[in-house]
Simulated assay, not measured.
Amino acid sequence: MTVKGAFDALTADQRAALLKDAAQHDVAFAAFTAAGSLTYDIATRPFFTFRYEGTAEQDSDIVKVTAAAETAAAQWMTARGYAYKNLTSQTTDMSLVPLGPRGRREIA
Score class of each variant (00 low, 15 high):
F29R: 12
D93E: 03
V27Y: 14
M77H: 06
R15D: 04
A12V: 14
R80W: 03
R102P: 06
T44Y: 05
M1K: 03
L19Y: 00
K20L: 08
Q24D: 14
R51S: 14
A22G: 04
R105G: 06
R105S: 04
T33I: 00
A108H: 05
P101H: 00
K85M: 09
G100I: 07
F7H: 03
A16F: 09
A31P: 11
I107P: 00
Y40Q: 01
D26M: 03
R104S: 11
M77K: 05
R80Q: 12
T88M: 10
F32K: 10
S60A: 15
L10K: 04
W76G: 00
T11R: 11
A16L: 09
A6I: 08
F47D: 09
K20Y: 10
G100Q: 04
R104K: 12
A67V: 02
Q90M: 02
T55F: 11
T71A: 14
A74R: 01
D13W: 01
L10Y: 10
W76A: 06
F7C: 10
R105H: 09
A83C: 04
E57M: 07
R15I: 04
E57H: 08
L99T: 08
H25M: 00
R102N: 11
T78R: 14
Y52L: 05
T71S: 15
A79T: 10
L96I: 00
A79P: 02
V97C: 13
T2R: 12
K64R: 13
S95T: 13
Q90T: 09
A83P: 05
T88N: 09
T2F: 14
A30E: 13
S37H: 12
I107K: 11
D59R: 01
V3Q: 01
A6E: 13
F7I: 04
A31D: 14
A17D: 11
A67P: 08
R51W: 01
T66Y: 06
G81Y: 06
A43E: 11
L99D: 11
A6R: 12
A68N: 09
A108Y: 08
R102I: 13
R45Y: 02
T71D: 15
S37M: 11
V97L: 14
P46N: 10
D59G: 15
V65D: 09
E70C: 13
K64S: 00
D21A: 08
G103Q: 03
Q58F: 13
H25K: 10
A22T: 06
M94E: 10
G81V: 08
T55H: 14
L99C: 07
L99R: 00
V63H: 10
A69H: 15
A73D: 04
E53F: 15
E53Y: 15
L87Y: 13
A28W: 08
H25I: 05
D93R: 15
R80N: 03
L10E: 06
Y82G: 10
Y52R: 05
Y82S: 06
S60H: 08
G36Q: 14
H25D: 04
T66Q: 12
M77D: 01
T55M: 11
A69G: 13
A43C: 02
R80I: 07
K20E: 14
A69F: 05
F32T: 03
A73V: 07
E57F: 06
D61R: 02
T92F: 07
T78W: 02
R15Q: 09
A28Y: 08
A83S: 12
V27I: 14
F7D: 00
G36L: 15
